[in-house]
Nucleic acid binder design. Structure first.
Length: 420
RNA sequence: GGCGGGUUGCCCGAGCGGCCAAUGGGAGCUGACUGUAAAUCAGUCGUCGUAAGACUACGGAGGUUCGAAUCCUUCACCCGCCA
C-alpha cells in the first residue's frame, strides 16, 4: 500500500488534498477508512461518477477500507448548483434511487476480507435528528459569513437566489463525515473537486467538535479537449445503467475519445499498469489512426461496468458494423448479434418509406429531419446511400432476407428487421 | 414605497406595425478532409408537407388594426436607480 499516493498522482486523480505529506504518510503506514458519497438525484450514476467509484476501488485494492455512502438524506435536500434551485424529489422516489445506486456501486468494491467495504446511508443518522439538536450540535459551528463566500452560493445570491434548504446542504454533508468518523473511524473523504468545499467543511467540523484531524482528497473534473464537460453526448449523460445507455452506446462513447484526452482517460479509468498505459499513450501519439488507446479504453471501461462478456460482444458488433463496407459478407449470426446492440425499428412490409424508418429507429426526430438528412447526403441503408427522399426499404437489398442497417452520417446506426 | 428598463427560437442576442419562422454568434446536425479523433471550410438548423402551402411560435391574458414579435391594457417574473 506504500505507493498508492504516487499511483493516484500519476493517474491524475488528485486535484486537491489536505496536507499532502500527512495524507501520504497515513496512506502508506496502514489501512485508512475512507468514504465517498453519491446523492440519489437520478435513477443511475453516470460516467462522471465513475472517477470516484474507481478511485475508491483503487484505494481498496491498496488495502484501505471504503465506506460507500448513498445519500438518502442529502438526496432529499440537494447540493446547490450555481445555476438554479433544484426541484425536490419525493421521498419514495429518492428511496428507490438509493437502492439502485447502491446496487450499481456494489460490484466495484469488495465487501469481504480485511479491507471489506461497507454501504452506508446518511438517512440512518439524519432522520432521527431533531431540528434543535441539529442547530445546536452542527449549526453552531458554521459561520454564515463563510458559507456565503462559497462559489455556488455566491453565484446563486447574485442570480436566482437560493433557498434556506439548499443553503444548509453543506451542514448535512459535514455532519456525515463527523458521524462516519465517530462510527467507523473514517479519516478520509473522497469526492469530485466540485465537492471540495463540502468536504473541507466536514474536516473543519470534526476538528472543532472532536479535535481530530481527518483528510480530504478531491479528484479532478475531467473535461474534453475543448474544455467542455466530460460525459455528455448530444443525447444527454452517459449512464452506467444499461437501460438508460446501452452497452453498445457506452462502448462507442469511449471509443470516440479524442486523441488529446485518451491517455488521460486511460490513466483515470483503466486498471492497466503504468507501463502498459504509457505504451498505449505512445502508440496514440505515433500512430493515432490505429486508435489502439481508444480501443483499449473502450474495452476496459465497458468490461468494468458491464462485464467482460458484454464488452466483447459490443466490441465485436462495433467491428462488424464499422470494420468493412460489405455488410452482406457478414454471416447471419454475427449480423443478428451486432444489430441487437443497436436501436431498432420493425417493419412489416418492405414498402415502408426510409424516412419513416429513420424516425421509428430514433435516427431522426421527425420526417422532415429525416428528409433533410437524405437531402444532405447523409443517409444510408446497409451502406448504400439514399438519394431519393421518397425511397422505400424495398429499393435496397435486404441482408439475409430480412435485415437492414440504417446509418445517419458516419456514426449513428440503427437496425431494421422485416417482420415475417 | 417611488421611478425607469427588461422577458424573443436549444443558449446568447438583434428586430420595434406588413418584405419576420424572425439578422448575427454559439451549440447541434450533414458534407469535404481524415482515422468512428481534433482543427478547418461549406451546407443545414420550428412542426407537418414531394411541393404549393398549412400550422405553431417572440413571458401569460385581453385589445387596437385589413395586418402585431413590434402599438395599447392588464397579470407574472427579472434587473437597475431613488427612498
Amino acid at each position: 500500500m506504500s505507493d498508492v499516493w504516487d499511483e493516484l498522482q500519476w493517474r491524475g486523480l488528485v486535484a486537491h488534498s489536505t496536507d499532502e505529506v500527512a495524507l501520504r504518510e497515513a496512506l502508506a503506514s496502514g489501512p485508512v477508512t475512507f468514504y465517498v458519497g453519491f446523492d440519489p438525484t437520478a435513477p443511475s450514476l453516470h460516467v462522471g461518477h465513475l472517477v470516484q467509484v474507481l478511485t475508491a476501488r483503487r484505494l481498496q485494492q491498496a488495502g484501505h477500507r471504503p465506506l460507500a455512502l448513498v445519500g438518502g438524506a442529502t438526496g432529499l435536500i440537494g447540493d446547490p448548483r450555481p445555476t438554479a434551485e433544484r426541484t425536490m424529489n419525493d421521498p419514495e422516489t429518492v428511496a428507490g434511487w438509493v437502492g439502485r445506486l447502491q446496487a450499481q456501486i456494489a460490484p466495484f468494491l469488495d465487501f469481504d476480507g480485511p479491507a471489506a467495504a461497507t454501504m452506508v446511508n446518511n438517512l440512518d443518522w439524519t432522520q432521527g435528528l431533531s431540528a434543535i439538536e441539529f442547530l445546536r450540535d452542527v449549526g453552531k459551528h458554521f459561520s454564515v459569513n463563510r458559507m456565503l463566500d462559497r462559489e455556488a452560493v455566491a453565484t446563486r445570491l447574485a442570480s436566482t437566489g437560493i433557498s434556506y434548504t439548499e443553503f444548509s446542504y453543506v451542514l448535512l454533508q459535514s455532519n456525515d463525515y463527523l458521524q462516519l468518523s465517530r462510527l467507523h473511524g473514517c479519516a478520509l473523504q473522497l469526492g469530485g473537486s466540485d465537492q471540495w468545499g463540502n468536504i473541507t467543511a466536514g474536516c473543519e467540523l470534526i476538528r472543532r467538535v472532536d479535535g481530530a484531524h481527518v483528510h480530504a482528497l478531491a479528484t479532478p473534473l475531467l473535461t474534453k479537449a475543448d474544455g467542455t464537460k466530460f460525459g455528455k453526448t448530444e443525447s444527454g449523460a452517459v449512464w452506467l445503467d444499461p437501460e438508460l445507455t446501452s452497452p453498445y452506446a457506452f462502448f462507442q462513447f469511449w471509443l470516440n475519445a479524442e486523441d488529446a484526452t485518451v491517455a488521460g482517460y486511460l490513466r483515470a479509468f483503466s486498471f492497466r499498469g503504468r507501463e502498459e498505459i504509457e505504451d498505449l499513450a505512445r502508440q496514440a501519439a505515433e500512430a493515432p489512426a490505429a486508435r489502439a488507446a481508444q480501443r483499449a479504453l473502450a474495452h476496459d471501461v465497458t468490461a468494468l461496468v458491464h462485464g467482460e462478456d458484454t464488452a466483447r460482444a459490443v466490441e465485436a458488433a462495433s467491428q462488424a458494423l464499422f470494420g468493412r463496407s460489405d455488410l452482406a459478407a457478414l454471416d447471419e449470426r454475427t449480423l443478428r448479434d451486432s444489430l441487437a446492440e443497436l436501436p431498432s425499428a420493425q417493419a412489416s412490409v418492405a414498402d415502408v418509406e426510409v424516412v419513416d424508418l429513420f424516425v421509428a429507429a430514433g435516427l431522426a426526430p421527425s420526417r422532415s429531419a429525416a428528409r433533410r438528412t437524405i437531402k444532405e447526403g447523409g443517409a444510408y441503408v446497409s451502406n448504400v446511400k439514399v438519394d431519393a427522399e421518397d425511397a422505400r426499404l424495398a429499393d435496397f437489398p435486404l441482408l439475409h432476407g430480412r435485415y437492414a442497417v440504417l446509418r445517419r452520417g458516419r456514426k449513428a446506426l440503427a437496425s431494421v428487421r422485416l417482420a415475417p
